[in-house]
Simulated scan of single mutants.
Amino acid sequence: MLARRNRATSALGMAAAASLALALSACGSDSLDSGGGQSSAPADPTTEVSADSALASKVPADIKAKGTLTIGTDASYAPNEFTGADGKSIEGMDVDLLKAVAAKLGLKVNFQAAGFDSLILGVKSGKYDASISSFTINDERKKEVTMVSYFNAGTQWAVKKGNPEKVSADNACGLSIGVQKGTTQIDDLTNRSKQCTAAGKPAIKQVVEQDQSKVTADLVSGKVVAMAADSPVGLYAVQQTGGQLEPLGSIYDSAPYGVVVPKAQTAFGQALADGFTAIKKDAVYETILKKWGNETGAIDTFEVNP
């Protein structure tokens, strides 16, 4: 399955903020617009990145010939990837990181939004040259595609402020827990639920939504008593609810996120890894993570299929 995204200190774009406020005030609304950016974001650090000829020479000829790569992403996972205030542009930490790496390699990128669970298939079919969308690297995915590590994230639970239902991640039997479709948190909840039933207790009721924004809305409205998400995303969602939610417990099961490229393109994967190393050396990597409040997820070594 997958794993996904998110944040600690970014602010919603003005249009997205209005949608969020409306959805949250509607206590039971069926929708919560995805998105979440910064109404006054710092200057784009990727604009200062220039091509490195030595790195560009490592890009396979067929990739280099394209010039501009088509990148698939699920733009509903702020602050890692989300739709901007204009309702069209795709922004976020992952977007900035890949733009910077591509610039080092003498390439440009064109991001296309798609459902999370369709992205790997899109890469395999050739619809996308690559995908970046807070994918947790795991053995199951590496059987299908090549993955390049660039960030570290874990699972974070969240509940309503004060935890009125006294929820515990280690004892959630019989409770309704929100989770986004296709994420590694579904595997986690499934395993926890099996432990419940094995002990003669009721199973965990997973309430699965297509977008993380809807999962958050479900928790605010009371449809679920807790949610589980990738640490950057879960913490960001908590922040955006204006004190209605709070983190539950500590981050666990930390693992690296990976850029996805076709299985056979390990050479391109290595070029991307070298590009990440280069933007870290230039301090652009840390600047981007800081911009999106995700410094704690920084890694030192970027690898192909770690």
Rank of each mutant, 00 (worst) to 15 (best):
D211V: 00
Y128L: 05
F151N: 02
L219P: 00
A198T: 05
I137H: 09
I177G: 05
S168P: 13
Q240G: 08
A114M: 10
S134C: 01
E165Y: 13
V179W: 07
M227K: 02
K160W: 11
S193D: 03
M227I: 09
I177Y: 04
S149C: 12
F116H: 10
Q239Y: 10
G178R: 09
S133G: 08
K142F: 03
D187S: 15
S118I: 04
L175H: 06
A158W: 14
W157F: 15
D211G: 03
F116M: 11
S131N: 04
K223W: 04
Q156P: 06
V207T: 04
D230K: 08
Q156D: 12
V159H: 04
R192E: 14
D211C: 01
N191R: 13
A228M: 05
S133L: 08
T155S: 15
K143S: 12
Q185P: 14
S133A: 13
L219M: 02
V220C: 01
L235W: 09
G243K: 06
A237H: 01
T197N: 06
V123S: 04
L219A: 00
N110K: 15
N152Q: 15
A113S: 11
A158R: 12
E144L: 14
K223C: 01
L175V: 10
A158Y: 13
F111V: 06
Q180V: 01
T190N: 09
Q240P: 06
T146C: 04
A226N: 02
T216D: 00
E165I: 14
D218H: 04
S125I: 12
G122W: 01
S125W: 11
K201T: 07
A237T: 14
S149M: 07
D117H: 08
V179N: 02
A237M: 10
S176H: 11
K142W: 15
A114Y: 01
E144K: 06
V179K: 01
N191S: 15
N138P: 01
K160T: 02
D139P: 14
L119Q: 00
S125K: 01
K166M: 14
D218R: 02
I132D: 06
S213L: 03
R141L: 07
Q195Y: 14
K223R: 08
L121M: 14
A130N: 06
L119Y: 03
K194P: 10
V145D: 06
G162C: 06
S149E: 15
K160I: 13
A113L: 01
Q212K: 14
S131Q: 05
G174M: 07
L219H: 07
G178I: 08
Y150H: 12
V123Y: 08
A172C: 02
F135Y: 03
I137P: 03
T183K: 00
V159C: 09
V179A: 03
W157E: 12
L235S: 05
L119E: 02
S118L: 14
K205D: 11
T146I: 04
K223Y: 01
V159Y: 13
Q185N: 13
R141I: 07
T197C: 02
D139Y: 09
T146D: 00
A113F: 14
N152M: 15
S193V: 03
K201H: 10
L235I: 15
Q206K: 11
N171C: 05
S125V: 15
T146P: 00
G178T: 03
G154W: 05
K214C: 07
Q212D: 13
A228Q: 07
K166T: 12
K124G: 11
K143F: 09
S193N: 02
S221F: 14
K201G: 08
N138C: 00
V148E: 02
V167L: 04
D218M: 00
A237K: 08
